[in-house]
Simulated scan of single mutants.
Amino acid sequence: MATGKAAQRMERESVASYEPKKNSEIRILENSDEMATELAEYISQVSEISVKERGYFAIALSGGPLVRNFVKHHTTKPWIGLNGISSGLMNERLERTMWIVPILNGHVYSINDNETVEDAATDYEFVIRQLVKIRTVGVSESNDCPKFDLILLSIDSDGHIASLFPNHPALDLKDDWVTYIIDSPDPPPERITFTLPVINSASNIAIVATGEDKAKAVYFAISEGTEGPDAPSIPARMVQPTDGKLLWFLDKASASFLEANNDGCEHPEY
């Protein structure tokens, strides 16, 4: 019987059929500790490559406790951290600045929660445009969007990522880098979020999911058998890197419908 890393490798190979794109990968981990270790190793590898090639590692993280709890990688390297892929203005500022520590002073760019949601989104986009202008953050070769070295997201039970919710008009934005919403179905109602073009322009995108309540959303986001006009609106399914790689980090519970389908079970209802 295979054990350790060999067993993990076999497990990853067993879900290869669920890869939505040729530049996508799925990793299924046994528990949260294993996921945290795997995620930290992955971030370390991407950061080392980025620093070697560009002199900087630009990472952007979404809000919420899931990503924050898993990101425990410590560094004194020239990381650039944007803590604002999505953020509710009612969140504690302290929580947002704890996502990646320690980073050199002046290298963390957070959303200003002392402004209105509209002004905060405008100012945050200006900050990112300045970082792109001086090439601290790269620029996509396919469009004028920023090209982050890594964007780290989590998926919720409704399939939303960042603060992009199912059937919301923000999903259709093409020219904005940062936008705001005032009608979030989840509290808080006012949020700021990266748009899909920015997310999809990243060199690397990682989506993290844990728990059985995410299993259906994960299935419909990943499975190739859910195309067509009757397919549910899953924002996470719209994460399709333009010229990058997508990596899913799943625990056994969140991957349960994928594994059930692999065994020949019927598609679940969403």
Score class of each variant (00 low, 15 high):
Glu269Arg: 11
Gln45His: 08
Leu153Glu: 02
Ile80Tyr: 09
Ile59Arg: 07
Glu269Thr: 12
Glu30Ser: 15
Ala170Gln: 10
Ile128Val: 14
Ser140Met: 01
Ser110Ile: 08
Ile155Ala: 00
Asn105Gly: 09
Pro78Met: 10
Ala121Gln: 10
Leu171Cys: 03
Leu66Phe: 06
Val127Arg: 14
Asn112Glu: 15
Lys245His: 13
Pro169Gln: 04
Pro268Gln: 03
Ile111Ser: 02
Pro146Tyr: 04
Leu66Asp: 07
Ser157Tyr: 04
Ser44His: 12
Trp248Leu: 06
Val137Cys: 06
Gln240Met: 01
Gly84Ile: 00
Asp176Gln: 15
Asp158Cys: 03
Leu29Trp: 00
Trp99Gly: 14
Ile103Thr: 14
Thr136Glu: 10
Ile181Ser: 10
Leu66Pro: 05
Asp183Gln: 09
Val117Arg: 08
Gly159Asp: 09
Lys77Phe: 00
Val127Ile: 15
Met1Trp: 09
Lys21Gln: 10
Ser203Gln: 15
Ile222Pro: 00
Ser86Ile: 03
Tyr270Met: 03
Thr3Phe: 12
Asp158Lys: 08
Thr122Ile: 13
Thr226Leu: 05
Leu196Val: 02
Leu164Pro: 03
Asp243Glu: 12
Ile161Cys: 03
Ser157Arg: 11
Val108Phe: 12
Glu269Cys: 08
His73Ser: 04
Lys77Pro: 00
Met1Glu: 13
Glu266Met: 07
Leu89Tyr: 11
Gly228Asn: 08
Glu48Arg: 14
Pro197Asp: 02
Gly225Asn: 11
Trp99Tyr: 13
Ile80Trp: 08
Glu227Ser: 13
Leu150Cys: 04
His160Thr: 07
Ala120Leu: 04
Trp79Asp: 01
Tyr180Met: 05
Leu29Lys: 05
Leu104Lys: 15
Ile80Met: 12
Thr37Arg: 15
Asn262Met: 11
Pro65Asp: 09
His267Gly: 04
Thr75Tyr: 09
Lys216Trp: 07
Lys21Val: 00
Arg54Trp: 11
Gly106Lys: 13
Gly225Met: 08
Asn83Trp: 08
Pro241Arg: 03
Lys245Val: 01
Gln130Met: 06
Ser47Cys: 11
Arg68His: 12
Ile100Tyr: 14
Ser14Leu: 11
Val67Ser: 08
Glu11Lys: 15
Ile26Ala: 03
Asp172Ile: 00
Gly4Gln: 11
